[in-house]
Amino acid sequence: MLLPLIIGFIFGFLLQRTGLGHSYKVIGQFTFRDNTMLKFMVSAIAFGMITISLFADENMLSASSMPDTYALGNIIGGAILGIGMAIAGVCPGTLITGIGQGNIDYLVPGVLGFLTGGVLFGYSFNPYFLKLSAIGFSKGLTLEQLTGAGHWMFSVEMLIIAASAFLITRKFDI
């Protein structure tokens, strides 16, 4: 009970302080007018990956937190989400963040839209989703299992990418 509350508090705090509760910050990323979101993502991925690699060495990862790979569904779903996010400037995490900072458009029509999307998914789960998610399904697949390369290789690569992005964006002030 306390753990999700604390995790949520920190997550909401950080997203708000990044400015992502404002839809123009999210939309600005996709026209590359404002690269806040990409910097945030790259940094999160690099530091998170290193931390996960440390935990993986200690065998502390649980199967329940590992997403399943079903390529076609992951891609189609991602594209549909991308279109909505680029137009309205919200994703599920930033919608909750926006509500916390007082955005009424997020709280009323935003939440109603998200709930409607959830209900629509419920209706399409049995007739369509089960078939779609069966295509190329691999439970809890990791890059390590897919390629045979060690997980540290990807973590260090990601850290190098993030460090390079940090230096480049600072140098050119983008």
């Binding site: 779903g77 594209a79 909505g84 309205a88 939440v111 109603l112 998200f114």
Partner: peptide, 13 residues
Amino acid sequence: CGILVEFGASIAG
């Protein structure tokens, strides 16, 4: 767009 985002996220996992 909220419908699209939540529906898309649910499909993607």
